[in-house]
Nucleic acid binder design. Sequence first.
DNA 1: TCAATTGCGTTATGCTATAACGTGTGTCAT
DNA 2: ATGACACACGTTATAGCATAACGCAATTGA
Lengths: 135, 135
Amino acid sequence: MTAPALTKNQSLVFDVLSRSDAPLSAYTILDKLRDHGFRAPLQVYRALDKLLERGMVHRLESLNAFVACAHQEKECCGGHGHGTVAFAICESCGHVVEFHDHAVDHRLDDWARERKFKPAKTTIEIRGLCEQCAA
Amino acid sequence: MTAPALTKNQSLVFDVLSRSDAPLSAYTILDKLRDHGFRAPLQVYRALDKLLERGMVHRLESLNAFVACAHQEKECCGGHGHGTVAFAICESCGHVVEFHDHAVDHRLDDWARERKFKPAKTTIEIRGLCEQCAA
DNA sequence: TCAATTGCGTTATGCTATAACGTGTGTCAT
DNA sequence: ATGACACACGTTATAGCATAACGCAATTGA
């Protein structure tokens, strides 16, 4: 059950996100890929959908933007696609730190179980100022 | 330092949200208030901004929608505007449950303190199926 | 009185995301 | 082989979310 190789468009989008040190909107990605033949938002959104499915990319709901997953394929919690991811987003420099916290995950799982709520996807985003920018 | 009374537009928007049992987008609110003289999105967004400032309304980042705060002015954690709020959102029926969890808050606070990150606003949203809809 | 602040209304615009159509390609059971 | 299917792709158009920029009116306070 090895995942199929990325298509050309998926690779291009993933590369752009990987090289960026801040989240990018779909339209910013589009602009960066015009030289590679991208003409329409859908080309970006379709690639993003697949990358999100694989857990190779995350969506930041509070920014309507996307980042490459900070972890490698086989790392930590089983690699891409497992566990809840949390983000600390600096509102000054735009830098994003991705992290996992099992205690938080457990706590939210417990809350859900008690209420028989079936979680599909959990979003945790802390917006604020990073150490550099808070100084 | 009592907060000033709500203006007419702010009251109208808050009432619409209070009466709804699911989150509403700004444009849906606009439609519901056309009979009261609302003509443009900005009238809604400006009212929402003030209501968000007061903590009387919350924004659901993963839905681009808004809900009235589930708690009363002087309740629990100091009432509106204190502590981090979390949401469980049913993707089937649209119902939203607002809750606070101090353990989660602490854990995220600790994470931030260790990294000298200064949180401004934290978003926690669990999307899934409520007990009714999961059956 | 004058300046500053705040809310309001309007028009226009920009950003984010998806619908709906058709094309080409590969797989695979028949 | 052939037909059915799944999937990626490209294009045009449209829907949905949010703000910029202008001007007016009312309020406050030095």
